[in-house]
Simulated scan of single mutants.
Amino acid sequence: MSLRVEQSLSQLLHEALVSLRTLGKRSMLALLGIVIGSSSVVALINIGHNASVDAALIFKDMGTDTLVVQFPPKGSANVPMRTHLDLDAVRQAVPGIAHIGALSLFSGPIVFHGRSVNANFVGSTPDVAAAMRLTLQHGRFLSGFDVNETYAVIGADVAQALSAPGDPLRLGDRVRINDYLFLVVGLLQPQPRAMLMPVQPGESLFLPAEGMRRIYAAPQINNLIIRAAVGQDMEHLARAAADALRAQLTEHDVDIQVPQQMIDGMTRQSRTFAYLLLALGAISLIGGGVGVMNVMLMNVSERRREIGIRMALGARQRDIRNLFLLEAVTLTAVGALCGAVLGMTAAWLYAWLSGWVFDLAAAALPLGVGSTLLVGLFFGIYPAVSASRLQPVEALRDE
Results as ranks from 00 to 15, higher is better:
L342A: 14
A131F: 01
A55I: 07
L3A: 12
I256H: 11
V153T: 01
K74H: 02
E306M: 10
Q7I: 12
S163P: 04
S204N: 11
Q261Y: 01
R305H: 15
S107N: 12
P259S: 03
P80H: 05
S388R: 04
E149I: 08
A240K: 11
G288L: 05
V153S: 01
R26C: 07
S8M: 08
V69M: 10
A328I: 05
G308R: 00
A242C: 08
Q92K: 15
R321F: 14
R26F: 05
S301H: 06
T66R: 15
R214D: 12
L31R: 04
R213F: 13
V53P: 04
P198M: 06
H252I: 01
S19Y: 10
L85P: 15
R82H: 14
G288M: 05
M296Y: 10
V111E: 05
I215L: 04
V68W: 07
A98L: 12
G63F: 00
G380F: 02
G335C: 09
Q269H: 00
L44F: 11
E6H: 02
A351I: 09
S8N: 06
M344G: 11
N148Q: 15
L196C: 07
L377V: 13
W356H: 10
L17G: 03
L188M: 15
V153H: 01
L20F: 09
S40V: 01
L67D: 14
I110M: 00
N299G: 14
A130G: 07
R321Y: 13
R316G: 13
P109N: 02
G288H: 02
V300T: 08
R246S: 11
D173S: 03
E306H: 02
S116Y: 01
A315H: 08
A347C: 09
I309L: 11
D243S: 12
L205C: 07
N299C: 13
R318T: 15
E302N: 08
L280D: 09
V254P: 05
L331C: 07
Q248I: 15
R268C: 03
L278C: 07
M28T: 14
P201E: 13
L276P: 09
A242V: 09
R316L: 15
T125V: 12
G231L: 05
G155F: 08
V254N: 10
I307T: 00
G37W: 02
L3F: 06
Y151W: 09
P126C: 06
R303V: 12
V369Q: 01
I381R: 08
L342K: 06
P366L: 00
E203S: 14
N178H: 06
D54L: 11
R318W: 15
M197D: 15
R305D: 13
Q220S: 12
A351M: 05
V153C: 01
L276F: 14
I225Q: 06
P80Y: 06
L374I: 14
D359E: 15
F273P: 05
I286Y: 00
L245Q: 10
G370I: 06
R4C: 10
S76P: 00
F378C: 07
F112H: 03
L103D: 06
P219Y: 11
A247M: 13
L207E: 02
V341F: 12
A156Y: 15
L249D: 13
L245S: 08
G123D: 05
F378M: 10
F378L: 14
L105M: 13
R21P: 05
L237S: 14
G308K: 00
R318P: 10
L353C: 02
A282Q: 02
F206R: 02
A130C: 07
F206L: 04
M298R: 06
H14C: 06
A164C: 02
F358H: 08
H236L: 14
E210R: 13
